[in-house]
């Protein structure tokens, strides 16, 4: 029994020590699209967001960074579908361009193994500008998730 407990303890310690360690941070928690004339600026760009990420003790397993909108852009009773927001991300790979969704997390970057030391990617969000939008200040939250394996 003593041997069993020893093995169990070592196994648990080993599991803890082998668990992936992930770090994720954004240079800014706010992304702002300035008001623009749809004819002059059909695609409104926000200032780039720097994503700093690190993946350790991942062996050769895969990792991915995704983004999910909590809903449409909302201003009182008015909505702008979140799919009107796209992004351009660099470097590619591991980053990729995409379109926001409020239902399915969209992949921004992915890879395998470790990313150490911390690495920075740049994401520029863009809003498709339209005359059909009602005036207002729209807002919505997006969730970045770094996962492994």
């Amino acid at each position: 029994m003593k041997t069993f407990l020893t093995v169990l303890a070592l196994t648990c310690l080993s599991s803890t020590a082998l668990a992936q360690q992930l770090d994720l941070s954004l240079s800014s928690a706010v992304v702002t699209f300035p008001g623009s004339d749809p004819d002059a600026v059909p695609l409104v760009s926000a200032a780039p967001v720097q994503v700093t990420y690190r993946v350790r003790q991942n062996n050769k397993a895969t990792w991915s960074l995704t983004i999910l909108g909590a809903g449409d852009l909302i201003s009182g009773p008015s909505r702008i579908d979140i799919t009107n927001v796209t992004w351009v991300a660099t470097p590619a790979p591991p980053f990729q361009n995409g379109t926001l969704s409020k239902t399915v997390a969209q992949r921004i970057a992915s890879g395998s193994g470790n990313v150490n030391p911390s690495t920075i990617g740049s994401i520029t969000f863009r809003l498709a500008n339209s005359w059909t939008y009602s005036t207002g200040t729209y807002t919505q939250t997006v969730l970045f998730t770094l996962t492994a394996p």
């Binding site: 196994t11 994720l24 909108g69 729209y138 997006v142 970045f144 394996p149």
Partner: peptide
């Protein structure tokens, strides 16, 4: 014990971060 540990595997872990999108429509 080994079989149990191997079967369960290591738990998937995740780090999250929120950002707020603001858009002005004039």
């Amino acid at each position: 014990v080994l079989v149990i540990v191997a079967a369960s595997g290591l738990p998937a872990i995740a780090q999250t971060s929120n950002a707020t999108l603001n858009a002005s429509v004039n």
